[in-house]
Design a binder for these strands. Structure first.
Lengths: 361, 361
DNA sequence: CGATTCCATGGAATCGTTTCCACGACGCAG
DNA sequence: CTGCGTCGTGGAAACGATTCCATGGAATCG
């Protein structure tokens, strides 16, 4: 770790450190001669400026923090990817943290991001507010929420309006004859969990469907709770004939559990999941989903954050969602019949929406 | 961004900065009195030490860099997760970078990691060596390779021995009567691409199967190349009756393409993919895979890196792989017959290996 | 009781970079 | 020829923490 400093570069170039610094940071007040000499000296020594020292003096670190609730969730993996690309475009490097859906890990990571003096933070919060998050606000560290928000914390955010998609899903299932729709919900401690659940209950009553509270299972956005939800709902005396699952990981767990039980998707049970994941279309039958554009969300989050860093107070953005109908939400079978022998799944109804994600205004 | 410094903490506590620093960094040479006063002052001001300044003076940053070739690849998402957890256990924070399977993005990220003076780097390299990687070695920055290596660069590494799994897969398919096995390979510019391809060709000849070079398609570990591979291989005059795909993303592309063509997995075409991804088991028919333990790989990589940081020169570790047979690799259909109407997939043969991943010694 | 050790403490140097300030050289207009 | 603005340059302060070193008081020992 024989680090080369700007001092050695200056010495080799035969100029002062001040001049070397000016050349290396693009300050125009330099002569062509010293520009050339410093540049070649830096190249020869393979000089890499120490970002710590640079950030210590200057105000900016040119780093953004992105804290997602679970990297293994394909939605957040995609989000990380788009955020990284967008940040890169603006000269920022992204430090990605993984809260693992746990508030303590989120706080630990937030603390290190604060310590490292990132220029701003994009946060998909877990829980309902912690000291670390309040600390963020008290220090006026530029922060935006993505995907989820926290009640009472007035920060710019990019979220999805799940209502449209959920309404479309409920109406679609109702039109297919389902009256008892099960719902595997996200945790009520998260804004998306609450909002989607509220939208679901509203749409269910609006469509005159069963509002039986036992049709709702509250999961935690992890695969295991999807399995548990299927177990609970199909164990009811009057099980649902259709199922809406509030995120992709729980959908994976739910599907695995249905497989184990020999319940055929799209035949014995209709299903729609929130979040469009590429391979959901590859399942047999392909899974109907409520889609929202992760690329737009990532780009918008970076845009908002950069505005906050520049001192602005941008308005929050709400992105649309929409139903994509595939074979898994075929018309209802007769409720209560035991699983039948495998038959080819019914032909999917004509899609009500294209697969292409909706662009934000 | 009204940052609180140790100076203000010291003032409030009524001690010198030196004492404050000692208390805050756990130096035992402090009196209980000042410990208490400094601690309460720090808490009251919500003091967060500036990691930049700390790292500037001291030698360590307590940060590791993890550079993966593609975050959206579930294998690397899982790896990121386990590495992060393991590093966390040792008090390190992980800076995750995404090379996007592109050498230029990898180099850009390596440069920022060098600039930020991370204590060590875990690298899943893209390409066959660049100036940035050579720079890493020249500076003696602790680095280990994970999943992939680069020929001629003698760094500790954790890799998977794909040979066992591929041999099992080829023998399994041969036993089922397949003689023409297609192979969608990873890029020959990557060590895993070369190694797995070499193992495949060796096993094919050993088992007396067709070594027709047109049965091999070279992809790039991205989904699109999986589709292209299916297109190329099924367009042959004598198409293969079985397919081995060298990674999970290309498998996704391949499966999508098979869907589009109406080719039934496990009926018209047997398939085995490298990398065990949770939801591959959920496909219908479930996908046979060559599994290797990503958790072991992540933990081992962190272990090796910590040894290198402590001045050691640990030996590289090779982890095992094994075939997990599921329904997608059913016995061969008659080659060349057009897709038949859907029938229930054949019952899977008895698994030759358990789903549980093999533990490293 | 005096000398010596121990220990908590504060002042100051240090890390590598940026940036303020002062200075000298130069060109140009009066 | 002198005065003034411009421009490139170097010295030194600054950023916020750690750590060496010296100091003074208390404790211990002969």
């Amino acid at each position: 770790m024989n680090a080369i400093t700007i001092r050695e570069v200056a010495a080799l170039a035969g100029v002062s450190v001040a001049t070397a610094s000016r050349v290396l940071s693009g300050n125009p007040a330099t002569s062509p001669t010293s520009r050339a000499r410093v540049a070649s000296a830096a190249a020869e020594l393979d000089f890499r400026p120490n970002a710590q020292a640079r950030a210590l003096r200057g105000a900016r670190t040119n780093a953004l923090g992105l804290l997602v609730s679970d990297v293994r969730n394909p939605f957040f993996a995609d989000l990380a990817h788009t955020v990284e690309q967008a940040a890169n475009l603006h000269g920022y490097v992204t430090l990605l943290g993984n809260a693992n859906e746990r508030a303590d890990q989120q706080d630990r990571y937030l603390d290190t991001l604060i310590s490292r003096r990132v220029d701003g933070i994009i946060l998909a919060p877990v829980g309902e507010g912690s000291d670390s998050i309040r600390s963020l606000i008290a220090r006026e560290i530029p922060t935006v929420f993505v995907d989820r928000t926290i009640a009472g914390m007035d920060l710019p955010s990019v979220t999805t309006d799940g209502t449209t998609g959920i309404r479309q899903a409920v109406e679609h299932l109702a039109a297919a004859g389902h009256t008892r729709i099960g719902y595997i919900s996200g945790p009520q401690a998260s804004s998306t969990g609450r909002d989607r659940f509220a939208a679901f209950t509203r749409c269910v009553t609006e469509n005159g469907l069963s509002a039986d509270p036992s049709l709702v299972y509250f999961g935690d956005y992890q695969a295991a709770s999807g399995s548990a939800g299927v177990h609970a709902l199909l164990g009811l005396r009057e099980p649902p004939t259709a199922l809406i699952v509030a995120d992709s990981l729980m959908a994976v767990g739910a599907i695995a559990s249905l497989h184990d039980r020999g319940v055929l998707l799209g035949v014995d049970l209709a299903m729609v999941a929130f979040d469009d994941v590429e391979w959901f279309a590859l399942l047999n039958p392909a899974l109907s989903v409520i889609s929202h554009s992760v690329a737009d969300m990532g780009r918008t989050a970076v845009d908002l954050l950069l505005q906050v860093i520049d001192g602005g107070t941008p308005a929050s953005v709400v992105l649309p969602s929409e139903l994509i109908v595939r074979a898994s939400s075929a018309p209802a079978g007769t409720p209560g019949t035991p699983p039948r022998p495998p038959t080819p799944p019914a032909a999917p109804p004509a899609p009500t929406a294209s697969h292409n994600s909706v662009r934000t205004h």
